[in-house]
């Protein structure tokens, strides 16, 4: 299936939870926030939240800013 991940098309084979997606991308969950279809997903829900075909996923973190 195909999702939109941080503005790019991203292919996933089979079912994947947010926790698994982050692991695949080598991203530490404690340093990021994740939004799926404009809904912020709580960190505690990462392990149960299944990514679906066509989902728009945004993964953000902190960068330098004023």
């Amino acid at each position: 299936m195909k999702i939109r991940l941080n503005g790019e098309d991203y292919e996933i084979e089979g079912e994947l939870t947010l926790e698994e997606l982050l692991r695949r991308l080598s991203i530490l969950p404690e340093r990021v926030a994740v939004e799926v279809n404009l809904q912020v997903i709580r960190k505690n829900d990462f392990k149960d939240f299944k990514v679906k075909d066509g989902d728009v996923v945004e993964i953000v973190n902190f960068v330098g800013g004023g």
Partner: peptide, 16 residues
């Protein structure tokens, strides 16, 4: 700090 997209492609990304 600012909130911005994680660079998905960069495996060696550094975190502020």
């Amino acid at each position: 700090v600012a909130v911005r997209r994680v660079n998905i492609l960069d495996r060696n990304r550094e975190n502020l």
